[in-house]
Simulated scan of single mutants.
Amino acid sequence: MGETCGLKGLGGLKILVAGAGALGCLYAGLLASQGHHLYLLGRKPLVEAVEKNGLKIRGLISLDVKVEAAVENPAQLKEEAFNLILLTVKAYQAAEAASSLTSLPAGKIPLVCLQNGLGVEEEVKKAVGNRFTVLRGVSFMGAYVEKPGLVRCTGLSSTLLEEPPPEALPPLTEMLGSLKAYGLEADFKPQIREVVWEKTLVNAGINPFGAITGLKNGQLLEVPQLREAIAETVEEGWKVASKLGIAFSRNPVKLTFKVAEATAENYNSMLQDLKAGRRTEIDYINGAIARFGEETGVATPLNRLLTSLIKGLEAERKLVEI
């Protein structure tokens, strides 16, 4: 039996989760459990399931979540004044999804981008102009959708945000405080760019190899040739990052192996996307590393090859942007 959570008195932030997939629903559950008012923007199956049975989180935590509303169209929320927006769609959907939110009341609401990969926040800023205060965040949570309205939590870890301007500080501080109250690491990170690149390099090393071979993360390390190729792929990205002036406190190759070992039984998200008939985020991971490599004069043959191979798999399977 899950813990029922939702509104606790009249306090709490009014938060819109734009992109109520696995990650968005997990954050909705965690924040609702701390007394915030959650609104979900998602696809029809999710909306219908939540309207009928509420949102259920299972796995490492068990929550039955009551939300204020679940809708398909942001125009249905045009009378709502939100304190905070969490943008949790896929990287390739972020700019379009953010643009659709301009029907909401103006007021430079903090909009936090929690996507994988590089360059997402720049695309979102171009799409919305000055209407929102766009900020980059990095999430190390893990979850997948078992069925509409039911999300299984597989990882509870840190949430890091770039330092906001003063006007955006109060709601973001309150949100991070709520995650901390749940026992999770949550903080502002002055050097968020380093965190974004570090996670991207890990994803670049693990995800495409798992997607192409169909192997679990741990199995990739058991094949010497794959282990070597993973290291070389990450090293390419490391060189690009160095050329851009980004320094890491940890060795990215060792970190990639460590993450693969810690998630040994997992099938990575890129493989799951291909299996489910969804477009992958390869353009924002290995593809982005290759683009930055071209701009900085750093050769990235492995990242370019992996991008082409995954794009080929997408084309062969006629995947859709869902």
Rank of each mutant, 00 (worst) to 15 (best):
91 A>L: 07
273 D>H: 10
280 T>N: 14
62 S>F: 06
254 K>V: 04
202 V>P: 04
92 Y>L: 11
155 G>C: 12
52 K>C: 10
304 R>E: 15
84 L>H: 05
286 N>T: 07
129 G>Q: 12
176 L>N: 03
305 L>N: 07
204 A>D: 03
130 N>P: 04
133 T>R: 01
79 E>T: 12
293 G>P: 10
105 P>D: 08
26 L>E: 12
75 A>S: 09
310 I>L: 14
300 T>D: 04
226 L>I: 08
171 P>R: 13
5 C>N: 11
319 L>D: 08
38 L>A: 10
145 V>E: 14
304 R>A: 13
40 L>Y: 10
281 E>C: 03
117 G>E: 09
315 A>C: 02
297 G>W: 05
290 A>Q: 02
246 I>C: 03
82 F>E: 10
153 C>E: 07
8 K>N: 15
14 K>H: 15
275 K>T: 14
129 G>P: 01
12 G>V: 13
5 C>T: 15
252 P>M: 05
42 G>V: 13
56 K>S: 13
104 L>K: 04
43 R>T: 06
299 A>C: 11
225 Q>P: 04
233 T>E: 07
236 E>L: 06
217 N>E: 02
181 A>G: 15
119 G>K: 03
66 K>M: 12
254 K>H: 08
195 V>W: 02
114 L>F: 10
76 Q>R: 14
97 A>R: 09
70 A>D: 09
120 V>N: 12
10 L>K: 15
309 L>Q: 09
213 T>Q: 10
275 K>E: 07
265 E>N: 05
205 G>N: 02
81 A>F: 07
82 F>Q: 11
134 V>H: 00
300 T>C: 15
36 H>N: 07
55 L>G: 12
46 L>C: 04
23 L>M: 15
212 I>F: 02
73 N>H: 01
165 P>Y: 08
282 I>V: 14
125 K>M: 13
33 S>L: 15
232 E>Y: 11
291 R>C: 05
220 L>G: 00
156 L>H: 04
237 G>M: 06
256 T>R: 02
214 G>R: 13
256 T>C: 00
62 S>I: 05
172 L>S: 05
149 G>E: 09
88 T>D: 13
114 L>Y: 11
43 R>Y: 07
87 L>D: 02
309 L>M: 09
25 C>I: 14
101 L>W: 03
249 S>D: 14
212 I>P: 02
171 P>N: 02
316 E>C: 10
129 G>A: 03
183 G>K: 00
90 K>V: 02
199 K>N: 03
214 G>F: 03
128 V>I: 00
135 L>T: 01
129 G>C: 06
209 F>E: 01
122 E>S: 06
308 S>C: 11
221 L>T: 00
232 E>W: 12
155 G>W: 03
59 G>F: 10
288 A>G: 04
15 I>N: 15
246 I>T: 04
116 N>F: 02
201 L>K: 05
300 T>H: 01
31 L>A: 06
34 Q>F: 11
11 G>F: 06
307 T>H: 12
218 G>S: 08
47 V>G: 00
302 L>N: 11
260 A>D: 05
300 T>Q: 06
196 V>D: 01
